[in-house]
């Protein structure tokens, strides 16, 4: 069975993929449909949804177009999710690989280091980091990466530990392959499936983290993000619930879609039925 056929067997994953494609389209089309900055005040404030053409979701406390903010926010969420996950992988994969492959005191040292980061409450750490570094896209990406690499390192380490004593790896060592070759050619390719699945779930978590940071006022002041929109409307929730409602739904759908896709990837990459032995 092909990879996509296995993926598509999971109907939820297919739905997730479609939602995700819609959100990606939103991010790409935002500058075309709403060429104006989402920060511009274009109408009177507190315009309810569907009350006026061109403002399907109304306007916010400052008279900015909510629909425009929502579409531009999609781009920010996806960008931060993807980049911070990539950075986290760049930290976690080599660390886990080295710890798992070499074992011994190297493993001890690297794992104590990882445990240290896992013990620290990660959202609190992200807040502190962004606050100290001053909010910006790069500080947010870095903070999210710093709090989210430990699970990657642990997963990769566990995979390496179970694979390094596999007979085919021992055979490679016996024929004289170097450690680097063994790590990169024999072991790493066999750990990719779980890493890919974890990465897709991490993008989702990163988007949640970003929105929570922006909600607390730690977003990049130059970009419109969903979390910021909810945070800015928090104090007027009694008058204008929709200002918080729609961005929240957008976050929910994105995170949900990524999780569904992650589950689908898991089914497709780690087929349990066809697995030998």
């Amino acid at each position: 069975m092909s990879f996509f056929a296995r993926f598509a067997q999971n109907r939820g994953a297919l739905v997730g993929l479609i939602i995700l494609l819609v959100i990606i389209a939103m991010a790409i089309l935002a500058p075309l449909l709403f060429p104006e900055s989402p920060w511009r005040m274009v109408q009177r404030p507190f315009l309810p949804p569907l009350s006026q053409d061109g403002f399907p979701l109304g306007t916010d406390t400052m008279g900015r177009n909510v629909a425009s903010g929502l579409m531009h926010g999609a781009w920010v969420s996806l960008l931060i999710g993807l980049v911070s996950t990539s950075v986290a992988l760049l930290i976690g994969v080599p660390l886990g690989a080295i710890a798992g492959y070499y074992g011994g005191w190297i493993d001890d040292l690297l794992m104590r280091f990882t445990e240290f980061f896992q013990t620290i409450p990660n959202f609190a750490l992200a807040i502190v980091l962004v606050a100290i570094m001053q909010p910006s896209i790069s500080s947010i990406v870095l903070a999210i990466a710093i709090v989210s690499w430990p699970p990657v390192a642990r997963l990769v380490r566990a995979e390496f530990m179970s694979l390094r004593n596999r007979e085919y790896v021992e055979a490679a060592r016996l024929v004289g392959q170097s450690n680097t070759t063994i790590i990169l050619r024999q072991i790493l390719p066999n750990t990719l499936s779980p890493i890919i699945v974890l990465a897709s779930l991490m993008v989702a978590t990163a988007i949640l983290l970003e929105s929570a940071l922006s909600f607390l006022g730690l977003g990049d002041p130059n970009v419109m993000s969903w979390g910021y929109m909810i945070g800015a409307a928090r104090t007027v929730i009694r008058q204008a619930w929709w200002l918080s409602f729609f961005p929240g739904v957008a976050i929910l759908l994105t995170v949900l879609a990524l999780n569904l896709v992650g589950e689908g990837l898991d089914d497709a990459l780690n087929p349990k039925l066809s697995r030998e032995r």
Partner: peptide, 22 residues
Amino acid sequence: ALVFYATPLFWVALMSVVVFSV
């Protein structure tokens, strides 16, 4: 469970204020 897992906590908080309190 998946929906609750994917929902931003602060948003649930706000929406529950709207529904149950307001």
